[in-house]
Design a protein around this nucleic acid. Structure first.
Lengths: 183, 183
DNA sequence: AGACGACATTCCAACTTTGACATGTCGAAA
DNA sequence: TTTCGACATGTCAAAGTTGGAATGTCGTCT
């Protein structure tokens, strides 16, 4: 149940936010950490309210509801941070494909890894550019957000290097057994 | 829909397997790439059979059903490998917590990162040991499995280094703003 | 012969996630 | 003044995921 804590955490940090506000944060700040759809966010807000972890602090124009965390909510966030250990549900579509690359025609496996490396390179560059653009505040979300952004950069860099290594590994595999084509 | 292709892919590679066989593979080989529960595996086998991508090739003792891929199944696997691009649904509970570390008492944020680094170090060592133990065959699953195992090692190493960097970053933050406590 | 662990499948209820649809308001610019 | 984009929420069906319970068989060791 981490979506719940993502929503709760944002409300605590912002000290008041609407579902709309949260959606923007999920799209921008949290994009690389936890994703959520609109229906999930609004649904979770309703559940958190029912459970007394947040409350509607103010209503604004266009039906805007500004939620704020209750004491119980803040406690629950801290409890989650300290007590609950995250299980690292590893699921990776790109890696799954690598497992079955043997089903493709010769050379296609290496092409896949080359493409992957290129994509990872692009993402890495994107985050690097972002990192240089952003001017960071001194609020919590900025402070810790900076750390997670750097994580993203390192993640993509690592993946790019791995894909290049793997491609080279496959390239090496093809040649050695036979050296009749040497010059 | 990647669970489907994970199951299909294993059946194609093994050229015949039961649900029980697949479960073992999910627990061992695929653990770091794609997870699945028993109910998911057996359920997916039924669906794949209904869709004509696999078929029961033989029945063994204890009601064992050995599935084999049909031509349509092999085609579908290749199509998936080439055509469908994996979206990198990034969700990471450990990273999510980092976002809200500001809610803890001073110092607890650094403790969290130190713990993370230690855990990542253990996993890294575990995979390294595994890598040294395993004697690889020359089948596809061994060949590509070796690549994904190395990925896992690099992943945990990267994470460990990041956590250490982040911890140092937070350590540095505390001191600079105020130098009244300098010697 | 009996006990036990590994083999093997099936079903289910609860929960989470996805993606789309539906509805409406406010503010600024043309 | 009208129009448009951003603001804002709510609901739903379908699909995917989790975790457990139920059930039974086969082979081996004592």
């Amino acid at each position: 149940m981490s979506l719940r804590h993502a929503v709760l955490g944002l409300i605590v940090e912002l000290d008041g936010a609407s579902g709309y506000d949260l959606m923007k944060l999920f799209e921008i700040s949290l994009a690389n950490v936890w994703t959520a759809t609109q229906s999930q966010v609004y649904g979770e807000l309703a559940k958190l309210t029912a459970d007394g972890l947040i409350e509607v602090a103010a209503e604004g124009p266009r039906g805007r509801k500004e939620y704020r965390a209750t004491d119980a909510g803040r406690d629950e966030l801290r409890r989650w941070l300290v007590e609950e250990e995250p299980r690292p549900a590893r699921r990776d579509g790109m890696l799954l494909k690598v497992f079955f690359l043997g089903q493709l025609d010769p050379g296609q496996d290496r092409a896949y890894l080359r493409d992957s490396a290129a994509i990872m390179g692009e993402r890495h560059d994107g985050l690097t550019a972002l990192q240089e653009q952003v001017t960071w505040g001194d609020d919590n979300l900025s402070l810790y957000g900076r750390l997670t952004l750097e994580y993203g950069r390192r993640f993509f860099a690592m993946r790019k290097e791995w894909a290049e290594w793997a491609e080279a590994e496959l390239a090496g595999r093809a040649a050695p057994p036979d050296d009749s084509d040497r010059v």
